[in-house]
């Protein structure tokens, strides 16, 4: 029990540190928020321009929930890159904590930050489109898909965080490319049905595909979870598989970095 308490305290260290970093880099965070709000509004206005409330909601859901998923993915994927940039990676790797503790702290902060960030965008969109009709919305469905999707995205984020461990110079860029590919194949702003066959096959492997589909059907059509089990089970499986797989792969990558001296590099 004391070991668990120690590990939880250490996890909190990462949450607190990331909060301090956000506070110190508030100018960048504000700029990023403005950019995200402007992006979400621009995309949503395409729906307004077409005079289609359904298209408007479809695009809004894409903009809002892609923002959440990408913020969570980004924070976790940058777990190593931030420390490499600051030069603190070796000190964190020397600390007497489990790697899962390290990653848990990063994940919890990423999810909290993602929720706050997304809530801010949501408020602006509601103010901009006050006549939006959500009378049919099933918020329980939306919440469940957000929760399940978070687990899967966390697993993918941990896998992406490995890249800067393995590729000192280009790891961060590779994580960015991975995030872009998830955006492309997951039907964020369009139905995956318009994708070529081979891309549709890849979209079936992206958790974001199921999250966005489930959220849209819950929010726009008011569909209960019981009618969306076909979208639920892939997310459950992905969460169960991706998080342990991410932790295992992270351990292997750390060992590789220690064997080849790649923890040392800075910047």
């Amino acid at each position: 029990m004391t070991t668990v308490a120690h590990e939880l305290k250490a996890s909190y260290a990462f949450i607190e540190r990331n909060f301090f970093l956000t506070r110190r880099y508030w100018g960048w965070e504000l700029a990023f928020l403005v950019y995200s709000v402007a992006g979400a509004l621009s995309i949503s206005l395409i729906g307004a321009d077409q005079g289609s409330p359904r298209l408007l909601l479809t695009l809004m859901v894409g903009a809002i929930f892609w923002n959440y998923l990408s913020v969570v993915f980004g924070w976790i994927a940058e777990t190593i890159e931030i420390e490499r940039w600051e030069g603190t990676l070796e000190y964190t790797m020397m600390a007497p904590i489990r790697r899962s503790t390290h990653l848990l702290g990063s994940v919890l902060y990423a999810m909290a930050f993602g929720l706050v960030h997304t809530a801010a965008i949501l408020v602006v969109l509601f103010l901009f489109f006050p006549n939006m009709d959500l009378s049919q919305a099933n918020f329980a469905t939306v919440g469940l898909f957000m929760l399940l999707g978070s687990f899967s995205i966390v697993g993918l984020g941990i896998l992406a965080a490995i890249l800067p461990l393995l590729y000192v110079e280009r790891g961060a860029q590779m994580a960015w490319v991975l995030q872009s590919l998830i955006l492309l194949v997951s039907g964020v702003y369009y139905s995956v049905d318009v994708l070529p066959g081979w891309m549709r096959a890849i979209s079936a492997l992206s958790p974001a595909t199921y999250v966005l589909d489930g959220v849209r059907r819950g929010l726009i059509d008011g569909a209960p979870v019981t009618t969306l089990l076909g979208e639920v089970w892939p997310l459950v499986v992905m969460g169960i598989v991706l998080i342990p797989a991410g932790l295992w792969a992270f351990g292997q990558a750390e060992r590789y970095a220690k064997r080849t001296g790649k923890l040392k590099r800075v910047g």
């Binding site: 260290a13 970093l21 600051e86 000190y91 007497p96 800075v266």
Partner: peptide, 22 residues
């Protein structure tokens, strides 16, 4: 090379290290 989170204060950096060491 003194490796720190340069935007954070010495106290914030030290408290982070202290928490990691229990």
């Amino acid at each position: 090379d003194a490796a720190f989170f340069k935007k954070l204060s010495p106290m914030e950096n030290l408290v982070f290290a202290a928490r990691l060491y229990g």
